[in-house]
Amino acid sequence: MRIALFLTCVNDTLYPGTGRAVVKLLTRLGVEVDFPAAQTCCGQAHYNTGYRHQAEPLARHFSDVFGAYEAVVTPSGSCAAMVRELYPRLGERARAEGRGEALARVLAPVVPKTYELTEFLVDVLGVTDVGAYFPHTVTYHPTCHGLRSLGLGDRPERLLAAVRGLTLAELPGAEECCGFGGTFAVKNADVSAAMGADKVRGAESTGAEVLCAADNSCLMHLGGTMTRLRTAMRPVHIAEILAATEEEPWS
């Protein structure tokens, strides 16, 4: 099977290790990975901040770049949700504005075949044991888009539970938002920071060494909070845990 990796602009720029981990993991599972170099951004930040019209060309571009692939895999719950949940809405709104079917038609092909990483592993590849080794105690934060928009359910936990050496600690108040929320983190910095601090303290109370999530945007906010609160925990994207093996451990 050949898939396109949509890494997301945030990961591409700030978290290349997550991208390398996805490539390593999927390749190990026999998937051929392509990284179309023309990819940029799904348009989520524009859309969520109120710049829907500016998000439209980015969505069109996404569709141009990825439309021909069998499947598009992304290590970000919120970007997957942007494509799956909000691209159809972009089309609907354009129609309501009297701009016809054109946008909806352009975006339609990518909507059903864009998958968040853990969803792709469990639903498409049908694996939960990916042959990973990670000898650490991990607590998992299910990010809001993964939880509520995509309905990932316990897929990430099932993948983590199958990792050799890994101890999974239950995160108290797991379903509560970490407070990132894109521009919310800056526009309402006080509330955002309070939410982040509560999430980090909750994670700390589990005794875990690692706080894991399937979205680096949330982990950037939580990781930045952790170092400021001087906790010893580390934020790690789930792809990096699943990619780690005894021969090539996570570092």
Binding site: P16, G19, G224
Partner: peptide
Amino acid sequence: WSATRDLPAVPAEPF
């Protein structure tokens, strides 16, 4: 942002 959170380090090489 930075009053309460550190910024991530910029990696040497983008993906």
